[in-house]
Design a protein around this nucleic acid. Sequence first.
RNA 1: GGCGCCAUCGUCUAGUGGUCCAGGACAUCAGGUUCUCAUCCUGAAAAUCGCGGGUUCAAGUCCCGCUGGCGCCGCCA
Length: 435
Amino acid sequence: MEVRVRLAPSPTGSPHIGTAWQALFDYVFAKKMSGKFILRLEDTDQARYVPESEKEIYETLKWLGFEYDEGPNIGGQFGPYKQSERLEIYKKYAEELKEKNLTLEDEGAIRFKTKKIGETKWHDLVGDKDIIFPNNTQEDFVIIKSDSYPTYNFANVVDDHLMEITHVIRGNEFISSTPKHLMLYQAFGWTPPQFAHLPVLVGADRAKLSKRHGAKGALEYKKDGYLKEAIINFLALLGWSHPEEKEIFSLEEMIKVFDFKQFNPSSAFFDETKLEWLNGEYIRNMSNEELEKRLDDFLVDHPAKGKLKSVIPLVKDRIKKLSDFVPLTDFLWESPEYDREIFESLKIQDLRLMMDKVIQELENMQKPWNAKNFEQVFRKLAEQEKISVTQMFQLLRVAISGQLVTPPLFESIQILKEEETINRVKEAIGFVTSS
RNA sequence: GGCGCCAUCGUCUAGUGGUCCAGGACAUCAGGUUCUCAUCCUGAAAAUCGCGGGUUCAAGUCCCGCUGGCGCCGCCA
């Protein structure tokens, strides 16, 4: 039998990282089993519906590369894939339950009469364990609301059955309502799917990740300069682990080795610090050409666009996120702003005099400058003037960039070119003298 | 309150009865390399395996209880 899994988000707000996390496991399991990955929009709550979030769901899945085989905007044989367009279907099945005398009217809504004796159990793939609920804890629940829309508990079961879903992979928070779903499957005489209740992702306060607990939207990570590969790899490390305890691996590799047995059932905290490290790893392990392309795509209206090639080697080891590129290199694209205190922190006795010597050397140096010669000249000057090599180079650095931290000096100067470098040092001298 | 899920370094985790006085990664700290920063390399510190009982020759690993965290108990999903 073909494995069919589904991601069933409700378009009530920007999809956060937890949605992407679940999508990852849906996608990986589907691929692992050569099955189908289906997207279904659970838009049965009219009051909370946010049209924009629907687009964001598509965009998030597209960004991460989790392409679905059937879904709202692409169709499929079991469509439509938006529950708001399946109202007639739910009505029909609710009718069926009514005929079996399993429903009861309640102020315009329809409730399902649950079985109160005995117990309901299933085997959960996460943790590889049985979960048992006493049936008397399950109250009669609404299946069709008075606005004629179905509830999650009902639509979910009907659709999973109709769409021939074989494995329901969803959050832990649905464990408590699974007995209700199972009772419905039984009432219809349907075979229930297998369940895998994933641990929940929690925020810094250890509460379930959600918008109100400060969870960032999944797409915000893209804006922040995270690579999709790093996000995916990091997400894979939450709750799940590689059988060989590897930390860095690709989606393809994860698909090869995936197994629900590697799940840790306890909830995990999304630690952005480790994500940053991982993102840096991906950046460093990327070819210069690839990084150039990614960065160029990332930058919008930035003066460096299209002129990245020579800068890439300078920043590759220095950025953890694509966005780090901007503050690190802005002095290359625009004139620096000088700060008196920064010059003073150099602890050079006669700053003005030293800078005059620097400018003399610069003007005497034969063009084009080359890094090796450049270094030699200034090491010698430092020695002559009895200041440390570090002080000398820091002076140059601050003079051309206004900053104490920049990519390597000589290479940066080569990008600025001789004329601009001399101009900046002169400007710095003017600043030091006047202030 | 009822029911359920969970419980190993600050964080993510490995661990399926002995090879664990608990291993890895991030973060932290120290040192080395170095024109700054970063990278890279070396090292350190960090968990009496939530607590208490059992079972066993042997328990982080199995069982029970407790405690704690979280979830559900909605005509939300």
